[in-house]
């Protein structure tokens, strides 16, 4: 048994869906005085518990709005859980909507350094990896062009190349395996596979059962913020298939 790299303990997260948004102080004060502020509480996640060992590749299944992306964001540290906690070790690479930290006025070259720094890497480190990143993305010709002139596929390719070049110990994938054109998709899947072989831990959200079957060894089903099943991939995917077909 490998060492435990991720421990999610009793994690719940509550959102206040205020029925009306008050963006101005005046509005807020008036409502505060009239006691009209009411929050519709909404538990996006409730009592999630699980542990992953190094090298586990877990597929997270569930319908839209089940809390899959929220769970990934809690693990990535973007959301702070309302209760419970997340313990993780090792370098984490979040692939949540690729290239979201890019600056559109910056060129591709500048964005590589910026995004690298966002992920916590030094300039020297990016210097050594720079050529590799550019080569993998296949954007040699456009590297000094401002990002606003890139197509969305080009941006995702650049994002993917930066995040995966650093060889993280944990990878968070939120439906990003459909990046770029067919050729790049093949290349990126190959890259991911080689990372899997090196024992990277993967959390993976997908709506494609086939993909989960191909890539994962464990799986989990989320439904309305609750974890209703967690275990070996084969059992869980079968269960999920039954669930979908029943309705």
């Amino acid at each position: 048994m490998g060492k435990k790299v991720l421990k999610v303990e009793d994690v719940s997260i509550k959102f206040n869906l205020s029925s009306e948004k008050h963006d101005s102080i005046k509005e807020y004060l008036i409502k505060l005085i009239k006691r009209e502020i009411q929050y519709d509480e909404f538990w996006a996640l409730q009592d999630i518990n699980f542990t992953l060992e190094q090298g586990d590749r877990i597929g997270i299944l569930g319908l839209n709005g089940a809390g899959k992306s929220t769970l990934l964001k809690v693990i990535a540290g973007v959301y702070k859980p309302t209760t419970g906690r997340v313990k993780r070790s090792g370098v984490l690479a979040p692939l949540l909507e690729l290239g979201a930290g890019f600056d559109m006025q910056y060129t591709g070259r500048e964005n590589i350094y910026l995004y690298g720094a966002v992920l916590g890497y030094s300039k020297q480190f990016i210097d050594t990896k720079f050529d590799e990143i550019v080569e993998f993305s296949g954007l040699e010709k456009f590297i000094d062009v401002p990002l606003k002139n890139y197509s969305s596929g080009m941006k995702s390719r650049l994002g993917f190349s930066i995040v995966t070049i650093v060889e993280p110990e944990m990878l968070i994938l939120d439906e990003v395996l459909s990046v770029g054109d067919a050729k790049f998709r093949k290349k990126s899947e190959k890259k991911l596979m080689s990372m899997f072989d090196k024992g990277v831990t993967v959390l993976f959200v997908s709506h494609s059962l086939a993909q989960v079957r191909r890539l994962c060894n464990k799986a989990m089903i989320l439904d309305h913020g609750k974890m209703i099943a967690f275990g070996e991939m084969k059992e869980i995917t079968a269960m999920y298939e039954d669930m979908i077909n029943k309705d």
Partner: peptide, 9 residues
């Protein structure tokens, strides 16, 4: 915002 929503910093 776009950065804050996606990665921890």
């Amino acid at each position: 915002a776009s950065m804050i929503k996606k990665v921890y910093v």
